[in-house]
């Protein structure tokens, strides 16, 4: 009975190495440090604007999703679905804001 094939759902899984995980963490910590330093010590620089903070946060989120959540090694459908959700959210938010501020 060939139906008894054990596990067919991991045909060729990518196994991230511990080393990869450490580098991902280092990247995330670095980005966190940048945000905090700009915010706390950047009094004479331009203070951390909402846009900068959200930009850095978004880069961090992409790093987490891409490497820790394995999006890089998953089927493309996961990335497309995620993009769909994010774009829907952004389109709604940004269009509403533009509409409001252009009155």
């Amino acid at each position: 009975m060939e139906n008894h094939k054990e596990n067919t759902s991991h045909p060729k899984v990518h196994i991230s190495s511990f080393r990869d995980h450490w580098s991902t963490l280092a990247t995330l910590l670095l980005l966190t440090a940048v945000t905090v330093v700009i915010s706390v010590f950047g009094a004479n620089l331009a203070a951390l604007s909402v846009a900068t903070a959200l930009l850095i946060a978004t880069v961090k989120v992409m790093v987490v999703a891409y490497y820790f959540m394995h999006l890089k090694y998953e089927k493309k459908i996961y990335t497309y679905l995620l993009l769909l959700v994010v774009l829907l959210f952004l389109a709604f938010t940004i269009l509403t804001a533009i509409e409001y501020y252009n009155r």
Partner: peptide, 23 residues
């Protein structure tokens, strides 16, 4: 479990600057 845990992390990545940092 990992995916769920990463989501919790993702949410915090946005909460942290929005509440604590944007001065």
């Amino acid at each position: 479990t990992g995916l769920y845990w990463h989501l919790v992390d993702l949410i915090w990545i946005y909460l942290f600057p929005l509440f604590y940092l944007i001065h």
